[in-house]
Amino acid sequence: MKGWRLPLAMLLVFAAVPLLPLGRDSGYVMLLGARIMVFATAAVSLDLILGAGGLVSFGHAAPLLLGAYAVAALDKAGVDGALPVLALALALAGIYALLTGAVALRTRGVNFIMITLAFAQMVYFATGSIPDYGGTDGYPLGERTRLFGLKVLHDGLPFYLSALVVLVASYLVCRALLATPFGRSLVALRQNEQRARAMGIDPLRVRLGAMVVASLIASLAGVLLANESDFISPAYGAWQRSAELMVMVLLGGAGSLSGAVLGAGVVVLLEEGLGRFTQHWPLIFGPVLVLAALGLRGGLAGMWARRG
């Protein structure tokens, strides 16, 4: 059971939310829960490269944005089938990760952080300059994506369950991947690159592979996000969104995957919850982040591991 308690506990919470007798609030709570799961999916994928692989990407909102624009592009063309939407989203995100990763992985440290940011900015500006999709104003979604005609991403329970399925699947894929020789190699490269190379592990191929997987998963979150808000805007890919994804991973505890889910929950709930009390919520959220960085080694997942 080692290492399964926290994720199972979180799964129980997510699965229980639709069953809670919340009456009129239940719609709002489910919306919030779905939002958490969408961002958690992106955060988990970022944790794969950032936490496990030590690749501090500051541009993880870019594949998310590409996923969202795949929805917009096909909606404009009158297509709302999940299969073509997913195919386009995954293709865009995969190609993006291959191209940018090949350049970014030539650099180290601060430069890697900054070049991933620069590539994400390119996507941000590119999407904002396509008049067909509303330019910087964004694109109102006509029809939500359907799976074989089924309204799986429509309001309420269907969307909630779809988000849950995507999150669980993404988590399991990342977790399983880390247990394979490929995953071991990725982690080995973070721990001691020189040693890993001397063993015969190819840093570029392993890291590029991980970046592609992370990008693919993030694009799924983008498809969900576009459907959740019925609106696609370059703002999903602004650098602040990339930073927010990093904050989720770091707050939850980098490298533990389930920590990223926890972090996404805390960030969304804090923003949303504090936002209900005061419009000046960043005055509380900001210092919380500073204090967390100063005091919370290993993130929330680290606290969980040290409990009792």
Partner: peptide
Amino acid sequence: DQVLATFG
């Protein structure tokens, strides 16, 4: 940690 704090 620096990213987290300075973003805050």
